[in-house]
Design a protein around this nucleic acid. Structure first.
Lengths: 251, 251
DNA sequence: GAACTTTTTCCTTATCGTGGAATCATATTC
DNA sequence: GAATATGATTCCACGATAAGGAAAAAGTTC
């Protein structure tokens, strides 16, 4: 692993945070690197348009080159094309917002989002990315991974890093995951967002591991027939898994 | 400029091309670097999720980490928020697809796109990025840059690099740019897309240079009153320039 | 206007990235 | 199915080049 590149990419991940604009001093503190090193890294990133440097304030933020790269990365997803109709159908049959989540490292990322008919809704925008143990849809994604991945996951977030959102006890999480895997669907109440009910199911690729997960998030007040929702989500996931049938090349 | 980082970022730009999946051999040929070096670069990028490596075919493509970064970069755009209403109004008053283009290095990138009411349309997706001399909207963006930038631009694409889309004669381009700057609006017929008419105008930030450009693209058959369209585009650009008034921090 | 903070440049050191060559895996051809 | 070719991966010795301390410059605050 090339040190300078790893540092540059970490820097980009730092710049992704909601604060949006950052000084060299702050970045240097957070990266635990001397300012001169951070300066040099940013200079290279700026040269290529990956970060934008405000000439007045000397603050840095993510640059325009990333927009087209991100669009190209999302566009190049076979999965995205195939999921469209399934998501649309799911949001219609449930009358809720439907989501497709894909893995991004140890986190789950919103690749598609289809809005339901109601005004009161729980929403996550395209590209939104949080830990995989947060919420039903991401938990389903995690549950669909090989068990060795579960161990890595727990190890990563208990030893190497502390997640922004609490992990809870490893044993409890493992229990939940086994349960989801058994039932093929996850339902959580207020797990990540208060007052929200999430229902998610893993989408399996030909290699046996989950390549994505699909599901809906609803305001708790609107959930009257949870079992019916679970069934709709599970069949949607099964449909998508089926249509992938051996051809998916992405995760 | 740090060599390894610059190479890694160039690699990402290469992977952006429509081919989507690439072998090390091909990348190594195109980068004019030994395969071992390319391999090492890709390894680091893959580790961080910036590229995805297919375990079966050993082909590489853009990775999921870029999706969330791209979304964050686009999201962090004040410009995008402000342009929304203006674009919507423009697409309604012209009954055509309206676009907001921002600079990305020497290219122009679609930051927003509002669809018009007709089925026959000329469309460019969010994130689409081509040379700044292509089409009226991007030409307006180029025309709004300082004249020194024009020189850099021409130099870049005549000496350093050959653009995928022909540049034409430098003198003719300079003439067009002066004309656009004078009139405040650009109109092209079949400049980049056959059978399409583009109309674009620069959006100026407080520093005097164009920070974006705004415009519409229409099938030629539908253009009956070009002068009216030009006026609508110009006033839309002026409105957006006005509302930026000294507060924009992005390009 | 002075004192402080932050950014930027400079320079020396040894780290670490580089690329050639060898090895291994995979596809292709006969 | 063996042989060959193509491409991916590993290894290693060399030397280019990141790295980070320190100093200078720029900007900010009181």
């Amino acid at each position: 692993m090339i040190q300078s590149i790893a540092r540059a990419l970490d820097l980009l991940e730092l710049l992704k945070r909601p604060q949006r604009t950052f000084s060299i001093a702050q970045l240097s503190a957070e990266m635990e690197l001397p300012p001169s090193t951070v300066h040099r890294l940013l200079q290279t990133l700026a040269e290529k348009g990956f970060v934008y440097r405000d000439e007045q304030t000397h603050l840095y933020q993510l640059g325009p080159a990333l927009i087209s790269l991100g669009a190209a990365a999302a566009h190049g997803q076979d999965l995205r094309q195939m999921a469209g109709p399934v998501l649309k159908k799911l949001s219609q049959s449930t009358a809720e917002d439907a989501f497709l989540i894909i893995p991004s490292g140890y986190r789950g990322l919103v690749l598609c989002h289809v809005e339901g008919p109601n005004n009161l809704r729980v929403t996550e925008k395209f590209g939104y990315e949080i830990e995989m143990h947060c919420g039903a849809i991401r938990k389903a994604l995690l549950a669909g991974q090989p068990r060795s991945f579960w161990q890595d996951y727990i190890h990563h977030y208990t030893v190497d890093a502390v997640p922004p959102h609490p992990l809870g006890s490893p044993d409890q999480l493992l229990g939940e995951l086994e349960d989801i895997r058994l039932k093929g669907v996850a339902l959580t109440v207020g797990d990540y967002t208060d007052g929200a009910v999430g229902i998610g199911a893993p989408v399996f690729g030909p290699e046996g591991a989950a390549v994505a997960s699909i599901g809906v998030i609803c305001p708790a007040a609107r959930v009257v027939a949870p079992d019916q929702l679970k069934e709709l989500v599970r069949t949607a996931a099964a449909e998508l898994s089926g249509s992938l049938g051996g051809s998916i090349r992405w995760l």
